[in-house]
């Protein structure tokens, strides 16, 4: 196995008494796209949100097990969530640009981190928006409100916003489920362009999407990881019966 950037061992998560994740063991190598698939309520989004500690925001959540990012335990008492989230960025289901200009949206993280050099900020804005494949559409409106953009453009601006703080890992929580098909395919293209430089983990309900973009696919069900493999194997030749049933729509 090549270098693993993120590892989870025996990860359990409880909402109050209810066990939502039942001992997940899943590792991610650097670079490439991994898709997390499974029926609604299977725990895939919950799992994704443990990876940058977004579940901390929800009261009454208990997490046991270990998640290590480059060998460091994310849940160690000394772990700094702010630093973690800088390195493990996240894009959400609903595009959530801040109600500011496109330019300000993209540089927000950097500016708050104290970066003032205008040239550097300009360069980052262009680079990030290019990477997110939305530069050509917005380059003439950088100082207009990001809220005026279409949903798909907003989502790509949100991706650019994450890229601007140069994370190593990008988590995406059903990034296209609120978008129309054309916008969805633009997001997919964006992700495919990014897969050589970033470790991308995306939750998706759309099996075709997983098969189109993911290098690896992990199938979750009832809070357990059923199987994880090269995407091709999951779709053509799954090891588990459950996976096959889900993939073929014969869900039982």
């Amino acid at each position: 196995m090549s270098k693993e950037i993120l590892t989870t061992q025996d990860l359990h998560l409880y909402y109050g008494e209810k066990e939502a994740l039942k001992g997940i063991n899943l590792n991610f190598e650097a670079k490439g796209i991994t898709a997390l698939i499974g029926p609604s309520g299977c725990g895939k989004s919950t799992y994704l949100r443990t990876l940058n500690r977004m579940n901390d925001l929800i009261p009454n959540v208990t997490i046991t097990g270990t998640i290590k990012f480059k060998g460091q335990n994310l849940y160690a008492p000394s772990a700094d969530t702010v630093q973690i989230r800088k390195e493990i960025g996240m894009v959400f289901q609903q595009p959530n640009p801040f109600p500011f200009s496109i330019y300000d949206n993209v540089i927000y993280g950097l500016r708050i981190a104290g970066e003032k050099n205008k040239e550097k900020l300009d360069a980052v804005v262009e680079k990030s928006l290019r990477q997110a494949a939305v530069w050509d559409e917005v380059k003439d409106h950088l100082h207009e409100s990001a809220l005026a953009l279409s949903g798909g453009q907003q989502q790509r601006v949100c991706i650019a916003r994450v890229l601007a703080v140069s994370p190593e890992i990008i988590l995406l929580d059903e990034p296209t489920s609120a978008l129309d098909p054309v916008s969805s395919s633009q997001i997919e293209t964006t992700l495919l362009n990014l897969r050589h430089d970033y470790t991308i983990i995306t939750v998706t309900h759309n099996l075709q999407q997983a098969s189109r973009i993911a290098d690896r696919t992990a199938f979750f069900m009832n809070g357990e990881l059923v199987e994880v493999d090269q995407t091709k194997n999951i779709f053509m030749n799954p090891a588990e019966k459950q996976t096959e049933d889900y993939i073929s729509g014969r869900f039982g």
Binding site: M54, L57, V82, I84, R85, K86, N96, F98, Y108, I112
Partner: peptide, 27 residues
Amino acid sequence: IDTTQREGGLALGLSRWETVTRVILPA
């Protein structure tokens, strides 16, 4: 102000306080 705005701020590596003062309050 929608919760997604708070999540967006935190997911960018802003602290809770930065999210409140730099994202939520301006909005």
